[in-house]
Amino acid sequence: MREHIEAARKKNGEAEAVTLIALILVCPLRNTACPGVAVNVILQSNEKDARMAHARWHHILTESQRHALKTVDDWNCSTGNYSDFLTHMHKAWHYLLHAEFHQAKIDYHYRDPKTGRHVMIDGEPKAWDLERCLRERYANSGDPVRLNAELFVALRNKVEHRYEHNLKIATCGKAQALVMNYEQEMVDHFGSKYSLADRLRFPVSLQALTAAGREQLEVAAKKLPKQTRDLVAKFEAAIGPDVLDDLRYDYRVRLVPIVGSKTDADLAIDFVKLDELTEDAQGHGRGRA
């Protein structure tokens, strides 16, 4: 009997040993197998509960990643739907922040200000919406990551189906930032093993890589309805130039073909940080001649 108690204490702590002692005390003395049975039942039950409790945030994060991957698939697909991109990226960010809060044991549910009790919907506590999550995660209202995500929350509520293609073109850099910010937030909080980089690829594009395609992009961007253009303009009017130029708010790249001999170590796509370039190269990167 003593060895069973010690085993329980070493494996799962003092609380389990106390529970085991209690079960043994009420166990009939004539049943000599009872202590061993009690040990097995408790250990199996506690191990299962521990796995479930530990894995809760992981399940939420997995759902977030599923939506993020679907998001990029929708964006890169020639028949992809922009409203689907907005919906799935919204959910990806939403679940990601819920997973962070859950792991940190932060209660991310609304409470009634009068009673202090959870607000209930269909018998379940009402979880914070994405806007509330962003405010809690990024306390600085001028944070470029928060502003980028908040812009897409606003666009998601206003997108019109017939202008989806135009909106996709006009917000391309911001959408790229939205996805990259998501990846960075996830890796920073949960570690590189949760990165999606090995499952995402740089898309092959014709529109942005040819002169005719570039003209089509510029024309399409100008055809956005006034309501949508006004929404973006009003949103950005309250943002300082430093944030507007921040790659975490609007990720813009200039593709330069690589010529010359190639080695086995060369990559087809090689991203270079702007601050690592010469002043002349930085000028071209910023669009100056």
Rank of each mutant, 00 (worst) to 15 (best):
D246W: 00
E276D: 13
D275H: 11
D246M: 02
P241F: 04
S261L: 15
L244C: 05
A268F: 14
P257K: 12
T263R: 13
H284R: 13
V256Y: 11
V256E: 06
K226S: 10
R252L: 12
T278R: 05
L277N: 04
A265R: 11
R286P: 00
R248L: 00
K262L: 15
R254H: 11
L247G: 13
H284W: 15
A281E: 13
K273H: 14
D280S: 11
F271R: 11
I269L: 09
R252Q: 10
D266N: 07
G283W: 03
F235H: 01
K262P: 02
R229H: 09
K273S: 11
E236F: 02
G285W: 02
L247F: 04
T278M: 00
I239H: 01
V232A: 00
R252C: 08
K234C: 07
A237M: 10
D250P: 01
K262Y: 13
G285Q: 06
L267V: 07
G240R: 15
L267N: 06
I258K: 11
K234F: 07
Q282I: 04
S261D: 14
D280G: 08
A268Q: 15
Y249S: 04
L247P: 06
G287M: 00
L247C: 06
R254L: 13
D275L: 09
H284F: 13
T278N: 06
Q282C: 07
F235M: 02
K273E: 12
D266I: 05
I239V: 08
D264Y: 08
T228Q: 03
A265Y: 10
Y251W: 12
P257S: 12
V253Y: 02
V232F: 01
I269T: 10
L247Q: 05
D245L: 14
R286M: 07
R254Y: 04
Q227K: 13
V272M: 05
Y251G: 03
L244P: 04
L267P: 00
L247N: 06
K234H: 09
E279V: 13
T263S: 15
V272Q: 08
D246F: 03
H284N: 04
R248N: 13
L244M: 09
V259G: 06
I269Q: 07
A237W: 08
E236S: 08
A237H: 14
V256W: 05
K262T: 14
G287Q: 00
K262N: 09
F235C: 00
D245Q: 14
V232E: 00
E279M: 12
K273W: 12
K226D: 10
H284P: 00
L231R: 01
G283T: 03
D266W: 05
G285M: 03
E279F: 10
G287W: 02
D230S: 09
D246Y: 02
D264T: 15
T278I: 06
E236G: 03
L277M: 14
D230I: 09
D264H: 10
G287H: 01
S261A: 15
G287I: 02
D230M: 11
